[in-house]
């Protein structure tokens, strides 16, 4: 059964949990909800050493995170991994 899309307020901690579980520095994971004119997006920040893990080879892990979050939170919600320090 398809459930109604979870609200961004629930999806944000869900994404934070998914990211914290795969990195070496879980305490440094920050996921922020940003409202812009183009819609809502979730910005993910991780410890620089974990950036490679969260993006994955060829963007594989980032794609997996987007797939799961898109599936539970609805297609309108974007996930952005912030990689500038």
């Amino acid at each position: 059964m398809r459930k109604p899309a979870r609200s961004p307020e629930v999806v944000r901690p869900a994404l934070e949990h998914l990211v914290r579980g795969i990195v070496d520095h879980p305490d440094d994971v920050r996921v922020r909800m940003v409202n812009s004119r183009r819609g809502k997006r979730l910005e993910v920040r991780v410890h620089p050493e974990d950036l490679g893990t969260v993006i994955g080879r060829g963007g594989r892990t980032a794609r997996a995170l987007r797939q799961v979050i898109g599936s539970v939170g609805g297609r309108g919600l974007r996930v952005e991994i912030i990689d500038n320090y």
Partner: peptide, 21 residues
């Protein structure tokens, strides 16, 4: 169903994340 997705794509993604965890 939301964790399975169309033809299992979400399931494959979640499996990949779980393997990383």
């Amino acid at each position: 169903q939301d964790l399975v997705g169309q033809r299992g794509v979400t399931l494959e993604a979640l499996q990949e994340l779980t393997r990383l965890a």
